[in-house]
Design a protein around this nucleic acid. Structure first.
Lengths: 242, 242
DNA sequence: TTCATACTTCGATCTTAACCGAAGTATTGT
DNA sequence: ACAATACTTCGGTTAAGATCGAAGTATGAA
């Protein structure tokens, strides 16, 4: 029975309030700087730096340098899942929780995640895109030729995206839906395009709201199905979106 | 964003080596006394008593008195699942782990998880059960009428299970295989039945070993396929088992 | 009643690590 | 070159809590 200590070492990392705050701030899949995480955790820069170093050597976070910033993100969806599981357990066992104002509802429906669409709409968009084979599923999603045509036609310059360093397609674990939505350069371009068309606008904070007509056009353009049918679920599952 | 601290309070409880040892000792669903748990954790009785009190007020454990003993058990399968998830994370992120002695191999092949079968055999059992449509996949697995007949015939009183409060079927994420196996009352009943038939027996700790003939009978009874074929994988996917 | 077992509570010690100030490094901007 | 920003490292303080010895309570056995 030496797996006790193994559990303990990881759990202890999650067991500090400052680190837990940083990790939950990262749960939406964004990458954040040390300063932002220090802010989120309510500690000074030095303290945050120390915590992040620990999380890094424990492989719970990955870091990438960009200029004088250092961006941290969760090392994988499993980290987010463990955090969710802990939240669930905390809730069941009656650790206090304030929960679910109306603003929360809106956040759940559509919000900005880093720079792309997340929440229920984001997940449904991803499902539809997979379903119509605009991207090929798998570990690393990839644009199909059918998808390339579609998005070029939609007003997104795919060739330009592919020249940049940023990956065109990326999975991104959705915090509220617990499924993947689309990130990467394409995810960002889609949000940018539908914002330009005034289908959606940004509210206070991270909340996004569709206009009534905007949502209809969004549904039509990507042929969203009413709800999650069987084949969509299959695609989701195969795309490891749990 | 005040759910950070909530996560932290639970995680901190799991983050102490002594407590982690006690909890993992309880993972198979048994109830153990304070002395036994002190022994398992390698601490004195007083120390163990203090830890157990904390775990109790946090609702991670339940206690029942019996004479001059006090028995503790996990307050629910979700606690065990969080522990498994943490083990999985610890493994992926390379937390030291002396790794793969023969005992480890055995653990990977078949072990007890809370009170049902886990490890490779557990996953293969679940795959076969899904494949033969004994339970219907989806978010909450459900026994089919075909499955009801099958298990009644196998010697399990399904009607009795359904009268109890505990869910009959439950997914349970397998720590080593990272796929689902079957938990819930039915999972427990199956393990209990194949133990009674002496197909499998419990070794030290959580390791389970099939007898040579027992495994053959097990394979035949549930019609396990040799390895994970395509349609099994499909079923797995539909059951959201990654 | 008396003793033993199983456990809890109290009190003191001691280890760990979270925290921040101060100083140091690296990168960008002017 | 100089200043500003972003971050890391070092050192000392402090607070939390893990541990165990000793004493107290409850149950069972002789």
């Amino acid at each position: 029975m030496k797996d006790g200590p193994v559990v303990a070492s990881v759990a202890a990392l999650l067991g500090d309030p400052a680190r837990a705050n940083m990790l939950t701030a990262l749960m939406d899949g964004r990458a954040l700087t040390v300063s932002e995480l220090a802010e989120a955790a309510g500690v000074t820069l030095q303290t945050a730096s120390g915590h992040l170093a620990k999380l890094k050597v424990a492989n719970l976070l990955t870091a990438e340098k960009q200029g004088r910033h250092r961006y941290f993100r969760l090392s994988g969806p499993d980290v987010a899942q463990v955090l969710e599981a802990l939240m669930g357990l905390a809730e069941r066992t009656g650790a206090v929780r304030v929960r679910t104002g109306p603003r929360d509802e809106a956040l759940r429906a559509a919000r900005i995640c880093y720079d792309h669409l997340a929440g229920e709409s984001g997940v449904r968009l991803f499902v539809a895109i997979c379903h119509h084979e605009l991207i090929a599923g798998g570990d690393v999603p990839k644009l199909t030729s059918k998808g390339r045509d579609f998005f070029n036609n939609f007003g997104i310059d795919i060739a330009a995206l592919e020249k940049a360093r940023r990956p065109v397609c990326r999975h991104c674990l959705d915090w509220s839906e617990r499924r993947n939505h689309l990130g990467g350069a394409l995810g960002a371009a889609i949000l940018s395009e539908i914002s330009a068309r005034k289908w959606i606008k940004r509210d206070a904070g991270r909340v996004l709201t569709f206009s009534r007509q905007g949502f209809k056009k969004f549904q039509t353009a990507f042929q969203l199905t009413g709800s999650h049918g069987k084949s969509e679920l299959l695609h989701l599952a195969l795309n490891r979106s749990i």
